[in-house]
Design a protein around this nucleic acid. Structure first.
Lengths: 256, 256
DNA sequence: CGAAATTTTGATCACGTTCAACTTCAGTGG
DNA sequence: CCACTGAAGTTGAACGTGATCAAAATTTCG
């Protein structure tokens, strides 16, 4: 894999990360190949295992093919903040690869399937094909926006608004990679994890979910959530979909 | 300015943004020049003016030479969250330039001096010199980390921890661009703004500052803050300095 | 089927908000 | 130069939200 003569598997262009990238940039067959060549290997991680550990170096990018994970920080006061949920198509190792030592940990919430790319290989690719450097910026900016929304939620949205916003954002992200359809989604984690993401206590998150249910905004069955009144939810959560521009293609450099 | 024959002013390499970049990458004189060529103009913005407006397009990067600003979001529930403080050396227009329409506004907290670079010019530069694409990723990752810490603060730090962390982070950022020394800094904004950044009410932020003062951790005189017990503050706020790696230089692509 | 993890419900209490008044300070015009 | 004005900072009292702790109910998994 990644070796010069290895054939590119058919499944590569269906990889959720590749699909996500192709939404934001023009990927020619040479680009698919370049990206493939930079993959060092494939791996599986079992549920509950930490793949990135706070305080230790981590110098690779992992493209999530399947499964869920969470980036989190344990504080000295004993509390935990989930910084974000990592879904298929997401990258693990950002921001870790840019730091001497990781500041956050990443734990698998389910069995994970990943493709591994050493950060150095990716940087080399950026020097050969600058659009991949721009792609990295785009990914980082996307994370930056999710982070900002997360700050807004924990800072100035009450629990109801917070949960509504969380569900809508999660749904949108899952839908892009084909893990949700039709106003239905499945929570990829326990309420304990989600509470730590939202900065709420478990009982209060549970009650808030129940309130949204009795108010007729959602329906729940176990971890299955269905949006009953999507517009009302968007209003409540002040939700705005992500509207990233596309990455200008190389031709742009010459023609513009 | 930016025109082919215009000389590069001496002051350019002292620009706080350039100085900040040079911390993370090797900048040869050709690079200083490339960066200068991409600047379209210089401008001043008066205090209280919004330079980026939520909902409107914004397709440029502004490098802050002097002054302070804040990126914020106004919610339908009437509350405001300051997403981050923008200091000399920071970039305005990230993430705005990557979005069809900006999601956040940016307001000047003091008179601002900026250098303007159209986003398209910067993208062209990235295709000519890929290290600038990587630099953009580095900047975005840095914002992403600040955003994550902000989420942790509003989500799982109590007001005392939150304020301690805020002061330390602000001090560190100001120090890098020579706006703070010797465990002393000046708050770049009113308590109302800072409260909205920390997700606290003004009275409670005020009381928390007072508590840190009476506990002997800081001293205050107007907006001047002095750290009396720096280690204790770092412990309280669970503060960890940013430890970004340097951007691999172009040679790296060939030699590694 | 039994044990453990997760979800749900309940009761109490503290933390931080809210609202209001008062103080201090900076800027401005008389 | 001082009086006036409005903004910013400070303090106080009361209230409400959401945390905490505990226990029960339910689901998941070995």
């Amino acid at each position: 894999m990644g070796s010069f003569y290895a054939p590119i598997p058919e499944s590569w262009k269906d990889h959720p990360f590749v699909k996500r990238l192709s939404q934001y940039m023009d990927l020619g067959s040479a680009d698919y190949e370049s990206l493939w060549r930079v993959i060092e290997g494939e791996t599986k991680v079992e549920k509950r295992k930490d793949l990135v550990v706070d305080g230790y170096g981590y110098r690779k990018l992992c493209f999530v093919e399947d499964g869920f994970a969470a980036r989190y920080k344990l504080l000295r006061n004993g509390k935990r903040q989930i910084i974000n949920l990592i879904l298929p198509g997401d990258v693990i190792g950002l921001p870790g690869s840019f730091l001497e030592r990781a500041r956050y940990s990443v734990i698998a919430l389910s069995p994970l399937k990943l493709h591994i790319c050493p950060i150095n290989s990716y940087v080399q690719l950026c020097y050969q094909k600058p659009q991949f450097g721009l792609a990295l910026s785009w990914l980082a900016v996307q994370e930056m926006i999710l982070g900002a929304e997360h700050t807004i939620s924990t800072g100035r949205r009450n629990p109801e608004e917070r949960v509504a916003h969380f569900l809508l954002e999660l749904y949108s992200r899952l839908k892009i990679v084909g893990r949700a359809v039709n106003s239905r989604l499945e929570l990829p984690a326990s309420q304990e994890i989600i509470s730590d993401a939202l900065g709420l206590s478990v009982p209060h998150f549970n009650r808030t979910l129940a309130k949204l249910r009795t108010d007729g905004l959602i329906a729940t069955k176990g971890r299955q959530i269905e949006f009953i009144d999507h517009p009302a939810l968007e209003l409540l959560g002040n939700y705005q979909p992500l509207n990233l521009t596309r990455i200008p293609s190389p031709h742009f450099a010459a023609t513009n």
